[in-house]
Design a protein around this nucleic acid. Structure first.
Lengths: 237, 237
DNA sequence: TCGGCGTGTGAACGCTGTTCAGTAACCGAT
DNA sequence: ATCGGTTACTGAACAGCGTTCACACGCCGA
């Protein structure tokens, strides 16, 4: 079945060429520049050829977007090494904003444009896995922080905690991207704003003094603990 | 000069008809639905007629956008009555998110799409006036809060303080708009998330106990101090 | 060698924003 | 009353967009 294999490989190669050309256009000239005709021209195919590999433009873009999520996650998984959940969250916030400002076009697509992508099976497979789902990563750290008694009472809901923190860093990132260089406002540096947001949020969210358990068991072995429960699950709309 | 007056008035009327038709399409069917041809059809003119009133589509949209900024400001100026700057900021945050979720299409255009509009003279005139410039409104409250010693040291920079708070509520608002109903995440209610963000930020930004000066000189001139209560109460509502 | 299948093409459709020559109405001056 | 210029609008066109479809070419198994 060597010939069939080759066919499949060639097909995959063309598909990759399409994706790479689109990614190039997208990263260098922004979302609006990604036209099927330009992509086709870049790979020296007729525009209609793309439809043999993607249902429509939206699917092409969604595929690009999914790959970008992967890269974002790849940027944050090293942080899983950090034992202290609060510190992990802090570093996560910085990494998140850094990703956003180094990949503004991709970030725009992933979190600001949001072409209402319904998740395919591929995406569903990685849901809730902290190593493959960025949101699960935050929530996991949040759960852990709550379990360790580090979080003040009103925020002892891992979902709410994660959503609040995410909203904070997303606010910093998306404002930077949307308003970059806007002369209306005397902007502080993006680093200062990131630090300010993360610092203020954590100061407000965390139990002062590091919380009770922080003193009692300073080493929180990350692998085994897993720190279940304490989420006050389910309820609280 | 009655005839010239009439001409000018008629011209203005057509301009308004264009704007209203566009606003209608925009609010009901979203940004993508605003097509010059559809606008023209709605007002029973030829598409090219619009170009007699607006340089291009971008200018039309920008004009709509500017009017929306006015409405946002109109929503927040009543809050100027609130004497306590922290409480004012808190209420401002809620009003901001409420505006965003009741005018999602407009919010998208104003703060997420952001068609890089360079400010015209009209916009420049209202800059820095807290009664006509939303950002100046926050910054003014921030300045006041700092002056009253209510803010913790790292955030004693009115610009940074305002930018941080804005980023926080913008994060909540824009995530709600972009991800509304996304099944990937177990969303808490938008009210809970708004309260969580504002509560956490203020808890982190504010001097605990209301700050030194809050005790030393409880009246901060600025007619009729009212209700500096509830400032350090955290998130609970 | 033949037939079928998969892949890519070229031309078209309907949509978009935008331009431009032409027209018709109006108004002040002659 | 008529002329000439200004103004507001039209109709047709252009280029570009995503998308579709009949068609052609080449590869592969029979």
């Amino acid at each position: 079945m060597s010939s069939a294999d080759r066919r499949a490989r060639e097909r995959q190669e063309v598909r990759d060429k399409i994706l790479n050309a689109a990614r190039d256009l997208f990263a260098t000239q922004g979302f609006e520049a990604v036209t099927l005709r330009k992509v086709a021209e870049a790979i020296e195919y007729a525009p209609a050829a793309i439809y043999g590999h993607f249902k429509d433009k939206e699917e092409l873009v969604r595929t690009l977007c999914l790959a970008d999520f992967d890269e974002l996650v790849r940027n944050i998984i090293p942080l899983a090494e950090i034992g202290d959940p609060i510190e992990r969250i802090r570093r996560l916030g910085h990494a998140y904003v850094r990703f956003a400002i180094t990949h503004p076009n991709h970030y725009r697509l992933m979190f600001m444009y949001r072409a209402q992508l319904e998740p395919d099976e591929d995406a569903l497979a990685r849901k809730d896995d902290p190593h493959r789902d960025g949101y699960a990563f935050v929530r996991h750290a949040a759960t852990q922080a709550i379990a360790e008694g580090r979080i003040r009472e009103p925020w002892c809901d891992a979902e709410l905690l994660a959503q609040t923190f995410w909203a904070g860093v997303h606010g910093v990132a998306s404002i930077e991207i949307a308003f970059k260089g806007d002369p209306w406002i005397e902007w502080r540096s993006i680093e200062a704003r990131t630090e300010s947001m993360i610092g203020a949020l954590l100061a407000g969210l965390c139990e002062p003094g590091g919380g009770p358990k922080a003193r009692k068991k300073p080493m929180a072995r990350r692998g085994a603990v897993k720190a279940r429960s304490a989420t006050s699950k389910g309820a609280r709309r």
